[in-house]
């Protein structure tokens, strides 16, 4: 059973529908006790970091996620869920969950033809192997919608990158935590396969 964390941050049902389609059992929950004891956690999200952290704190989901991470629960962050696990976000100058040392920063692009948000399909390049990305081949594309991206001091925690003005991390991981900046649930068969890999993953 995968628990999808509900913190009022957008398309949770898209993730649920994708898991249903794959025949993977899941539940959507905002209950910190359920998150703390979950077998596996998906932490999705669309929206702004500040508002999201406010809700997480108010509902005690911040401590539940930290506890689940410490307990070794496999966690998959998606989009905003890939940003809020870092120490800090430039968006609303927000102090985040700090599960992975790093900061979420805004795209500053010199090329005026590159638009922000970075929205659409872009190629994802695997920089070091990970079971969740095992099906990827060069030039495989995923669907992105974001204006901020994760920046890590420790490149050993970066598993994949994309190009938009410059190279930026799009998949990060440490121990039982893995997170992707793109929307796996909206990235066609390759995204579904990634969710399937997470369901099978035994960190």
């Amino acid at each position: 059973m995968i628990t999808i964390v509900d913190y009022k941050a957008g398309n949770l049902t898209s993730v649920k529908r994708a898991l249903d389609h794959l025949g993977i059992t899941s539940q959507i929950s905002a209950d910190p006790d359920i998150v703390r004891k979950a077998e596996k956690v998906i932490f999705p999200g669309v929206g702004a970091a500040g508002a999201a952290m406010d809700v997480l704190k108010e509902w005690n989901l911040d401590s539940a996620l930290k506890a689940a991470f410490k307990n070794g629960t496999p966690i998959l962050g998606i989009c905003l869920g890939c940003q809020i696990i870092l120490t800090h976000s430039e968006e609303d100058d927000t102090h985040c969950l700090d599960l992975v040392p790093g900061a979420c920063v805004r795209f500053h692009l010199n090329d005026p033809t590159l638009k922000v948000p970075h929205m659409g399909w872009n190629a994802v390049t695997v920089t070091q192997p990970h079971p969740i990305l095992s099906h990827l081949r060069p030039d495989d594309e995923f669907y992105f919608v974001h204006s901020f991206y994760p920046q890590l001091a420790d490149m050993a925690k970066v598993y994949a990158t994309s190009e938009y003005g410059s190279t930026f991390p799009v998949a990060i991981g440490t121990n039982n935590l893995f997170a992707v900046q793109f929307h796996a649930e909206k990235s066609g068969p390759l995204g579904l396969r990634l969710l399937e890999n997470f369901a099978r993953w035994k960190p």
């Binding site: 389609h21 669907y143 649930e185 990235s187 066609g188």
Partner: peptide
């Protein structure tokens, strides 16, 4: 559609 189509 959302149950069967996994693109935006």
């Amino acid at each position: 559609v959302a149950e069967q189509v996994f693109i935006p």
